[in-house]
Design a protein around this nucleic acid. Sequence first.
RNA 1: CGGGGCGUGGCGCAGUCCGGCUAGCGCGCUUGCUUUGGGAGCAAGAGGUCGGAGGUUCGAAUCCUCUCGCCCCGACCA
Length: 479
Amino acid sequence: MSEDKLPTRAEDFSEWYNQLVVKADLADYAPVRGCMVVKPYGWALWENITAWLDKEFKATGHVNAAFPTLIPMSFFEKEKEHVEGFAPELAVVTHGGGNELEEPLVVRPTSETIIGHMYAKWIKSWRDLPILIVQWGSVLRWEMRTKLFLRTSEFYWHEGHTAHATSEEAKEEMYRILDIYEDFCLSQAALPIIKGTKSETERFAGAQITTSIEAMMWDKRALQSGTSHYFGQNFAKAFEIQYLDNANTLQFCETTSWAISSRIIGAMIMVHGDDQGLVLPPRLAPTQAVIVPIFKSPEEKNKVMDVAERIFKELKAAGIRIKMDDRDNVSSGFKFNDWEMRGVPVRIEIGPKDVEKQSVALARRDRPGREGKTFVPQTGLDSALNLLLSEIQDSLLKRATEYRDANIHDPKDYEELKKVVQDGWAFSYWCESTECETKAKEDAKATTRNIPFEQPGHDGNCIVCGKTSKRKVYFARAY
RNA sequence: CGGGGCGUGGCGCAGUCCGGCUAGCGCGCUUGCUUUGGGAGCAAGAGGUCGGAGGUUCGAAUCCUCUCGCCCCGACCA
């Protein structure tokens, strides 16, 4: 069954990814161009992601609400940059109930406009501020080239939309959210990320400041994994979001928006996955450990299953997301490979020998083969397993961080920059001019990812033009 | 939108150039028996308007015309 194997990442990373997403049972291709079906296993993973974020947003004073999928076309025309940014990828509804509509409706590609419209209606006084709303849902963008999770026409996300009295407050909100995103990536997804500010050309359509978290995939390309925007008064002016301050003066609000999408699943796949398949961080894995019972004769089966079921109950009671693989139509060897493909962090093998010795075999997913296999006693298995899960979580982040750091270069000159970005990132001074940015993009296909908040603290020379520059930026080929 | 390729059981394909009998193969699926510590074996089954429409012909998966859809490579984005 060699066709059941994935191509290795080195052979064909793109094909490895495409096959993995389907074989790991995360998603399937939908009968609609560019769209995906998120399968139960993939959705369970998404639910673990959303649950953590939702809890964190609520803890910082945000509330959830829902706005319509359909937005009047005219709303998009109110903010010039916004409409220019999104016009090419809008899906438009022109008919309803069998008749042509008077005004076409746009299927939301993002909700700044309709939420701005509502905020204008709701906000009257400084006492109404801040307003901190999160919407969980999906949006639609007519994409040219799609890839499951990374870029599909419809994708799932949360979009936070906030309105504030002052620009300081709004900017604080933007940074606060970026910190939550960072915390999520480090503590849950085991993704090392870099926080920073986007260049003018990479900025969100209509934003004054766009910040992002950027992650390095296995193929060393960059993936924007979350964004947080400060709009200043752009949308407030377009939608007349105004309030009376405590001196009875009419003021425009300052607004923000921010998002992490189902794309983050693609990031986890491309950062942690290996040639056997998916590798999921234990904190987010829908199944943290799977029990594979092994037996030959019916007598053996009885003995093994007694122990396996007892252990299953114990671990479940201990709060571990555990699964029993009692399928009798596939061999245990098949099951090993199957669960490795699905990225389950730990496999618990229980066979006649283990029943005899009152032990089990633990195989950790992040270290395939014999190296990752240990035999432990059945007593105290829950704490041993919890310890192992936490070790795996830490080890994934450590490994990904080392890999990223080893592939970030500090080129001496522009020639070297062009070379290093073919297989890594460059961290270089940049004069922040669009000319130099465009030149790098044309010469090396590398774009500026972000200007990180952490800087050396002294000036340097722009890697492209040599001019004295204040800050360094990451250049990389990006998804 | 430009270039390249493909539509044949659930999936992957052969057959198409050069028309010919009941359209094959692998995987998967179903049932049974033997198996099970790293992707099991045997046997018997189920499953197809050959993307669609029209045409040529005694006869079309195969030839002609039109059409629909998808995938891959180049200009956008979370």
